[in-house]
Design a protein around this nucleic acid. Sequence first.
DNA 1: GCTTTTCCAGACGAATTTGGTCTGGTTCGC
DNA 2: GCGAACCAGACCAAATTCGTCTGGAAAAGC
Lengths: 168, 168
Amino acid sequence: MQITRAAEYGVLGLTALARRPLGEVVMIETLCAEEDIPNSFLGKILQSLAKAGIVKSARGSGGGFSLARTPTEVTALEIIEAIEGPIAFQRCLDEDLGCEHSGGCALCALLSEAQEQVREVFGRTTLSDLTGRHIPNGLVRQARNRSSETAAPVMPLDPVPVQPAPAS
Amino acid sequence: MQITRAAEYGVLGLTALARRPLGEVVMIETLCAEEDIPNSFLGKILQSLAKAGIVKSARGSGGGFSLARTPTEVTALEIIEAIEGPIAFQRCLDEDLGCEHSGGCALCALLSEAQEQVREVFGRTTLSDLTGRHIPNGLVRQARNRSSETAAPVMPLDPVPVQPAPAS
DNA sequence: GCTTTTCCAGACGAATTTGGTCTGGTTCGC
DNA sequence: GCGAACCAGACCAAATTCGTCTGGAAAAGC
Ligand code: SF4
Ligand code: SF4
């Protein structure tokens, strides 16, 4: 009953991208550093996202990834399903597999209801919503490392030095 | 992003039990036949349910399992969490593991919201709700087998011969 | 007290999924 | 042409899932 790491990294990676002006091209390595994601893994994840038309990729020197749409028009549901495939709580709710009992199965009905709730929550949350209230995980870790050098054991999480919102 | 088979079988097994008068003792084998569940697997699942105080077990000849509470007082959430452990969409939402970024992580907030929705749906559905609208999977399979002998390809799912609701 | 029947506890293991890495390409800018 | 970057897929280790199996232990009946 967990979201996979791939989906988690995918969403986080996109917030890193969405934090920038629309259309800016960024290398995988940069995104990984900002959100603390294993480098080559994010590469693979972004490929799925590119196929789904959420990001655009540019090869060659000066290349990287950029958002294909504005962050307000990309939902978390799209991102997650692009990476993990359709959300399905059981095989009966998966289009491909199915279950012969699904007609009269009470559990199937219950799971279907729960699943719809999840899709609703993910579906109404856009990438820009997420980016707005997100503190880049990489920054958090850096701050923690610095403070441990200077002996303070717990980091107070001061006002965060995120880049100012794009004036749009 | 799936409910495990164990949880599925657990819920189905309990509907089989709840279909009977409260307190009736039934053997694993009988329950398995009714809902089409691998025999020894259900044994293990029922052990967790017994530890959680949802069913009572009786050893020896004439033994088996019985519900420890009325079906109206057992929620699907209890059943599922007794089997799978607490529902947690990510490590940050799991009490034991946790994640150091959880403070400022937007994804964590989103997953938390989705997860609460699921818990709400499961929490308000009782075992008696489920039993009420459930057609035992074993019966469905038997009917299918019979109809395939007599050549009818699709089974119409007639009014089902489930035992009448306990007059209570 | 012996036997039969049932659950109990946990070891065991095959299959699948997850969480990545690596390699050999391909495409682009220069 | 060269180097920087993505691309496609093979590959792999670890974890999890989905069970089975075995040797008990308790209860009932004789
Ligand atoms: S929940 Fe019911 S319908 Fe869905 S897979 Fe399980 S048995 Fe089949
Ligand atoms: S969602 Fe955010 S807080 Fe939760 S585990 Fe992932 S990084 Fe940590």
